[in-house]
Nucleic acid binder design. Structure first.
Lengths: 216, 216
DNA sequence: AACTGTGAAAACTTTCACAGCC
DNA sequence: GGCTGTGAAAGTTTTCACAGTT
């Protein structure tokens, strides 16, 4: 595999292409063109070709990209040719909701353990996943062979938990706490901040109102 | 206000600056420098100055940016100098969790109504918010003066609900369904896809393993 | 004829470096 | 001396346009 480094936006788009290839109407067809795939993802055909060409030549001139082959190629590039074992740390509102969120399982992310500081939750089972105490974090993560963690603890606790996760070799953290984490060179980190996304919307709405004059 | 158009990444950073200005240690101090603010947000000082200069001159040469003034300026730019009335459509796992998620209220987003298709949920009250049936969507949104919607319905229903929201004048939609929405020129749309974020992590992890040779 | 792969051009974003001000 | 505001430079991403392949 010709693995060059792809920018974050390229990776996002690759994930989008893969999703379209996995479901109808692309799935089941033999070939798909860059313009079809682009239209389905809201991206130009040239962008699709450039993105894919970063990793090699997947297409056939004249016919397009063979769907199955491209799907398999993207899965290998993105590391999605296998399942991933995931733990949820912090089984409150958001963490608890994700435990029962089918879409994760469907897309290859197996939730195998949960953790919470609240004694009332420890030992309970939520959607088939056992909730452990924070004291058992390192041992359970190791014995369950967890690679990725969804971090959904309260903001003040996030940094400390993140460094414990870094110390025990977790490869990636998806952080829902609205704080900036930086536990060094170990795990990759991505942040999801719902309020921040809403703020992006309010900017757009406010800017539009200003443009339209007064209150649109 | 000198309202030029800012790119999406600029807006994200502006939201980050504002968050730092609202909480200690910046809050309470008289001035903050671009390098301090940048360090707190993981951004260079030059980037901070460029971002802010897009909207005017907030700083004082020699001393930095007056915290209160800059905070007020950013709030006006981002449309965060007032509260926003938000509804949650789809009170399942994710939608239900967001109803009880304090961070939204704390950052000025007032959850004033919820909607669900499940008759068992209609009429119930979750975290102080009444759940309405989908039939009442337009009337309740209008009477509750809702401007933004968090859309958390199952993927097959998302597109249809989004066009109803567009038709009744909703200004912004935060979509949690893993599908691409395009309800035309009405509302601004942003997407949050938890599995997609995890996929971004698996790419980074897989790429690192490849670089390190075999399995890191 | 249809469509990819890719250099070159254009557009955009970030960093640099320094004049200007407090 | 310290720090902003900003043009110019460097770097990055996207689009264009077309040669090359089936």
């Amino acid at each position: 595999m010709t693995a060059r480094r792809a920018s974050e936006s390229t990776v996002r788009r690759l994930c989008g292409y893969l999703r379209r290839l996995r479901e109808p109407p692309a799935a089941g067809r033999a070939y798909v063109s860059s313009s079809e795939l682009g239209a389905a993802c809201g991206v130009t055909a040239a962008q699709v070709r450039k993105d894919l060409s970063l990793f090699g030549s997947f297409g056939r001139r004249g016919s397009g990209y063979p769907v199955e082959e491209l799907r398999a190629g993207l899965e290998a590039i993105l590391g999605l040719d296998r399942g991933w074992r995931v733990a949820v740390v912090g089984a409150g509102k958001i963490g608890g909701a994700l435990l029962g969120y089918d879409d994760l399982e469907r897309r290859g992310f197996h939730l195998v353990a949960a953790f919470d500081a609240d004694p009332a939750k420890i030992g309970t089972v939520r959607h088939g996943v056992r909730v452990h105490g924070m004291a058992d974090l390192e041992t359970v993560l190791a014995s369950a062979d967890v690679e990725l963690v969804i971090l959904a603890v309260p903001p003040p606790a996030a940094a400390a938990v993140a460094s414990r996760l870094a110390a025990c070799g977790i490869r990636g953290i998806l952080n829902f706490a609205p704080v900036r984490l930086d536990p060094g060179p170990g795990p990759d980190i991505r942040n999801v901040d719902v309020a921040l996304e809403l703020e992006g919307l309010t900017y757009a709405v406010a800017a539009r109102s200003r443009r339209d004059g007064g209150r649109g």
